[in-house]
């Protein structure tokens, strides 16, 4: 995947670049907004990571200019401006996702993967059901079955599962869950996510004697089937 990174802090951009390369992505780095605009207009990128504060042309104007020029590259804003207004401004300008500093690299990686997937999957999004192994989610009837057995899920638990099934084998972070499932854009100081994940596990894993939701330490969770022996 080709990623454009527009960030003016050299040491930050060097570790993000290193991390993205290690994850197998091709990375183009620039610290100038104007140059980034030219790059995006002339070359294809799967995802662009853009800092809000940049020399030359600020991130917001850069994205506005790109969208005005019909460039549809998914854009992830990277910013120290964590206020709600700033986030709304970023999304209104045409950004697709928003990550505030300080961030964990795993969070960035998870979001970049989700973004690139979103843009390539838009045409097949109308599928009435999502499957992962023996787990089937019917999006029209809002029902979930595993090995043919109906699962009794709360609406939010269904939403959590749907998010995982849309991004199988990818890390979904705690913040991504908070934003997509509960529409919460602040950091709760209590274990909201952990509580709901553990309840979901009780319903979709316990009766079947294996595990589906794997904890990725320091990052989040991912959907991956493991038998109990493997997990140990």
């Amino acid at each position: 995947m080709r990623v454009l990174l527009v960030e003016d802090d050299v040491s930050l951009s060097s570790f993000v670049e290193k991390g993205l390369r290690e994850a197998g992505h091709q990375v183009e780095v620039t610290e100038n907004g104007k140059y980034a605009l030219t790059l995006c207009m002339t070359e294809h990128f799967d995802v662009a990571i853009v800092d809000r504060m940049l020399p030359g042309l600020d991130g917001l104007s850069l994205v506005k200019a790109l969208r005005a020029a019909q460039v549809g590259t998914p854009i992830l804003f990277l910013t120290s401006l964590g206020g709600v207004d700033d986030r709304v401004q970023g999304l209104e300008a045409g950004g697709d996702d928003y990550l505030t500093k300080p961030f964990a690299f795993s969070e960035l990686l998870a979001r970049v993967s989700a973004l690139s997937r979103r843009s390539s999957l838009t045409s097949t999004d109308t599928k009435p059901q999502l499957t992962f192994g023996d787990l089937v989610l019917n999006l029209y009837e809002h029902t979930a079955t595993r090995q043919g057995k109906q699962l009794d899920l709360q609406p939010k638990e269904f939403r959590i599962l749907e998010l995982f099934l849309r991004h199988p084998s990818r890390v979904i972070t705690r913040t991504m869950l908070l934003e997509h499932v509960w529409d919460i854009h602040f950091d709760p100081q209590t274990s909201v996510v952990e509580t709901h994940i553990s309840r979901l596990r009780n319903k979709i894993e316990k009766p079947f004697g294996d595990t589906l939701l794997q904890t990725v330490r320091g990052a989040g969770y991912k959907l991956e089937h493991r038998s109990n022996e493997e997990a140990k």
């Binding site: 802090d9 040491s11 930050l12 570790f15 504060m53 120290s80 401006l81 964590g82 505030t100 500093k101 300080p102 961030f103 964990a104 690299f105 320091g218």
Partner: peptide
């Protein structure tokens, strides 16, 4: 305050990354 945020949060991000 936006500048302070920018100047302080970038190093905190680096710090966290280095610690990790």
């Amino acid at each position: 305050s936006a500048n302070i945020a920018h100047e302080l949060k970038t190093p905190i991000t680096r710090l966290r990354h280095n610690l990790l």
